[in-house]
Design a protein around this nucleic acid. Structure first.
Lengths: 108, 108
DNA sequence: AAATATACCTTGACAGGCGAGGTATATATA
DNA sequence: TATATATACCTCGCCTGTCAAGGTATATTT
């Protein structure tokens, strides 16, 4: 259990939305990207990733379609919706506020 | 549901340890203090607070004793242990790392 | 032939948060 | 006098996000 695991709980959806902000992507790629961005120190567990996709799609924050790969494994691509963008911006603001709050409360 | 609720999940124990770092205290006072420090924008729910006390005491991070109030409701005071101080310092380092990580992953 | 990488998925357990409910003492208010 | 409010503690059981474990399929490398 990596030290950061518990503390990132609740940010999974925002992390996904951030990745989809500029281009469509699919699960495997998103997770590889996260590993690269964090220098290998963090990755989403597959079950976590896919359950987050379900929630986000259910909520209308993303939509999905099958890629047209003629070779290799099939890919389900995700697109961020207008609602998803709004949600992401709100989540970012919430994160800024939460960061402040936690910093304040951890002062001794 | 306050906007920050989910994002602070996992920090309850650290928030309590921070409060106990310089002086013993009791549940009701700790919660009032949190409300004051955050300008009323955050409070621990009682069930959350007391279950965190159980976990922390079970883990040896705090110990407790009954106050000797001669009037008013009884108070259970908590003391942070040496282990609790070590844990708190570790939690703070983890938080710094997590903060960095999340900031990185939320960049678009 | 077997291992590895790519790529998707589900089930069920676990842990922390918390709504709802309960107990008791003391003070302020109607 | 009754009742509301503040102080102060507690438990039970549900909800939700995480994730270990397991599964499927295709392509490439060894």
């Amino acid at each position: 259990m990596p030290l950061t695991a518990d503390l990132i709980r609740g940010h999974t959806e925002s992390i996904i939305l951030a990745h989809l902000f500029h281009q469509d992507s699919y699960g495997y790629e998103i997770n590889k990207s996260i590993q690269e961005k964090t220098g290998g120190s963090y990755e989403l567990k597959e079950a976590t990733l896919y359950s987050a996709f379900r929630r986000l799609e259910q909520a209308g924050a993303i939509s999905s379609y099958w890629g047209d790969e003629t070779t290799g494994a099939r890919r389900r691509y995700y697109t961020i919706t207008a609602l998803g963008r709004t949600l992401f911006e709100q989540n970012k603001r919430d994160w800024q506020a939460a960061k402040q709050l936690i910093d304040t409360l951890l002062e001794i």
